[in-house]
Design a binder for these strands. Structure first.
Length: 630
RNA sequence: AGGGGAUUGGUGUAACGGUAGCACGACUGACUCUGGAUCAGUUAGUCUAGGUUCAAAUCCUAGAUCCCCUGCCA
């Protein structure tokens, strides 16, 4: 669906770049539907002005239907990419619809965060392919009419049983349930009671409206499911208008029906619900006249309305990641328990967390394409996500130098008080990125780990008497070590070879290592958040039953770094990132993004702390692997 | 008296009766002013047992294992 290799960095949404959606079993179903003409063709009057659908092309409509009761996470990203990507690949329509049927748990704040995250990811819900932002609550009136219709048809009844009694009557999978004593209540009485439930005459939990299906069905969802419950609760959209709210199962299929969704894509656990959704639509359609081909002019009549649209539900396996928790409950616990700083903590697997950490939407889309879409429960190695962001940033992120753990180096033969600016390549993957001047002087900092007094054989970096290259600068040779009273190395004395200016030796002599560095007098102070995985085990909680036991105590450590001065303000040749987040590769260290702060950030905001970076990902480090093996 | 799904290298995913392929990882090597990147190569798989067929990952039978379903959550 997306082209993660796009280098121009513009903000085109997923899939609008004419690439085919990755093939999977869902595209197979859609292709077959198109071949059979199942969903018909776009009519001109169905396409909004400027819409991306073509009249006469086969109709494909998808949607992303989140409940606004939390922030979106990487699992939702898979669904967004899938649904938007399908609409894009087939010239269809994509709706963002909030499933806001439970005001007790939903908040407007979440609506805003979800819109932002979907858009950032490329789900362009109000662009050419988008059907806009929609709400289930906008359909409450029609759903209520459908409920009345079922009551009149003898297919639903108001039940006075308590929640416990309903559960009791439902039975267990191996045993049939029992009918509610209210199952035979007259339609007129149910209609009256439902109206009074809606008006708020009864307390929460006192009655429900239930479908009259089959209390002996092996599918528990068909044992007279609850359609409406009484909830005296203010709704973010409808206010106090309703004292009853539809259950998800009752509402969801109608939401898709009303919006003309053709392919209603959801996760595997809803497969058992599909017969119920089909039953609801069929129950409404019973006795109605068929849609005609010229449906635009066919409105039916009051006594015999036309049938409602019957979407096709398709289930796929949700995303699972190792070293990660994705259940909404656990994410809420992490936030409310103070184990992270908020929903957008850069260690969180939320879209806003990844954004703040420096991940790009292109990388997340590439990852979603990469893992594919199937009906098989699987666990994806989180390393693949990390690789996706490395892969994207390697091509696009400008290189800079920063020293996380500084060790002072004095170049003894470099004139005191002198400084020069050496050109450094901005991106070896992209020659057009040019160069930038980097100041060099007598006193420098290098990474403490880049020096060893007594190095093992495979250690290539600086050591007494050894010559290495300073990236884009000079060859230097270590001539002395300065230690404090405790024997800690506090400073290195080196000499440089003026003939190697720029990093090349005219005599062809080789060095085995190139080090990053900064000029002590020119470098900027920066705070760097070194972020690591939030959990130390592949399946958090597997061992003890409590996932919090597997929290990684060192998921966040803070480094006081020294970085090159070009980082202070956006350089003119710095790439423009559509989301405004400045991302870099610190040479030999990894990818880092300037922390944009966030509503939940209590520390780490730029204003109070100066320059703050979040480490997006480390570079692959074969030396670390080698060292660990020894 | 249960019902619904799923099973291909370490991981993920193709192959829809006709050469088991791709990606990631791992391992070798080359190259390199990032121990990065890149390039070349190696590695390793059809849940089990029967059956149908010239031919089975694919069809049939039996079994195994895993996931989902007993909210007035979604």
């Amino acid at each position: 669906m997306s082209d993660a290799s796009r280098a121009d960095g513009d903000a085109r949404p997923v899939g609008s770049d004419n690439r085919q959606a990755p093939k999977n079993f869902i595209t197979g179903i859609i292709d077959a539907d198109i071949a059979s003409g199942k969903w018909g063709l776009w009519r001109a009057d169905e396409i909004k002005p400027g819409g991306g659908q073509k009249p006469g092309a086969p109709k494909v409509c998808t949607r992303f239907p989140p409940e606004p009761n939390g922030y979106l996470h990487i699992g939702h990203a898979k669904s967004i990419c899938l649904n938007y990507g399908l609409a894009a690949a087939y010239g269809g329509r994509f709706n963002l619809r909030f499933d806001d049927t439970n005001p007790a748990k939903e908040e407007a704040e979440y609506v805003e965060s979800i819109k932002r995250d979907v858009k950032w990811l490329g789900g362009d819900y109000d662009g050419p392919l988008g059907g806009g932002v929609l709400f289930a609550s906008n359909y409450f009136g029609r759903m209520y009419e459908f409920a009345q219709d079922l009551i009149r048809k003898g297919k639903a009844y108001v039940c006075d049983l308590s929640a416990e009694q309903v559960a009791q009557c439902r039975g267990i999978p191996q045993k049939p349930g029992r009918d509610s004593p209210y199952r035979t209540r007259s339609a007129d009485e149910s209609l009256d009671l439902l109206a009074r439930m809606k008006a708020g005459e009864f307390p929460n939990g006192s009655r429900t409206l239930r479908a009259k299906i089959d209390m002996t069905s092996p599918n528990l969802n068909l044992r007279d499911p609850v359609l409406y419950r009484i909830l005296h609760e203010e709704h973010h959209n409808t206010g106090g208008e309703w004292c009853i709210y539809p259950m998800y199962d009752w509402a969801h299929g109608f939401e898709d029906s009303i919006e003309g969704i053709t392919h209603s894509i959801c996760t595997l656990e809803f497969e058992n619900h599909r017969p119920l959704y089909d039953w609801f639509i069929d129950a409404v359609n019973e006795g109605r006249s068929a849609l005609r081909a010229d449906a635009s002019t066919h409105v039916g009549s009051a006594s015999r309305p036309t049938r409602i649209h019957h979407p096709q539900q398709i289930e796929f396996a949700r995303l699972n990641l190792n070293y990660t928790v994705l259940s909404k409950r656990k994410l809420i616990d992490l936030v409310q328990g103070g184990h992270v700083t908020g929903w957008d903590d850069p260690r969180m697997p939320t879209i806003s967390g990844y954004r703040r950490r420096g991940y790009t939407p292109e990388a997340i889309r590439a990852f979603c394409d990469d893992v594919g879409v199937t009906r098989v429960n699987s666990v994806i190695d989180v390393g693949r996500l990390e690789n996706a962001v490395r892969d994207d940033l390697n091509r696009r992120a400008p290189r800079r130098m920063g020293v996380l753990n500084p060790l002072k180096v004095v170049i003894e033969n470099y004139p005191q008080g002198q400084a020069e600016h050496l050109p450094a390549v901005n991106n070896p993957e992209d020659p057009s990125a040019g160069t930038r001047p980097v100041p060099f002087s007598r006193e420098l900092y290098i990474e403490r780990e880049d020096f060893m007094e007594d190095p093992p054989k495979k250690y290539f970096r600086l050591a007494p008497g050894r010559e290495v290259r300073l990236r884009s600068a000079y060859f230097i040779t270590c001539t002395g070590i300065v230690k404090d009273a405790d024997g800690n190395i506090t400073e290195l004395r080196c000499t440089y070879d003026p003939a190697t200016r720029g990093g090349d030796s005219p005599d062809g002599r080789k060095v085995k290592a190139t080090l990053h560095w900064v000029s002590a007098g020119h470098a900027l102070d920066a705070k760097v958040h070194l972020l690591d995985r939030l959990f130390t085990t592949e399946e958090p909680g597997k061992r003890t039953g409590n996932y919090l036991d597997d929290l990684n105590p060192s998921s966040l450590s803070v480094a006081r770094a020294r970085v090159e001065p070009s980082l202070g303000a956006p350089a003119p040749d710095e790439p423009e990132w559509p989301d405004g987040i400045r991302r870099f590769q610190f040479e030999r260290l990894g990818y880092f993004a300037i922390d944009p702060g966030g509503p939940a950030a209590t520390s780490g905001g730029r204003s109070e702390a100066g320059l703050v970076f979040n480490r997006t990902a480390t570079l692959r480090d074969t030396w670390a692997r080698e060292a660990a093996r020894a």
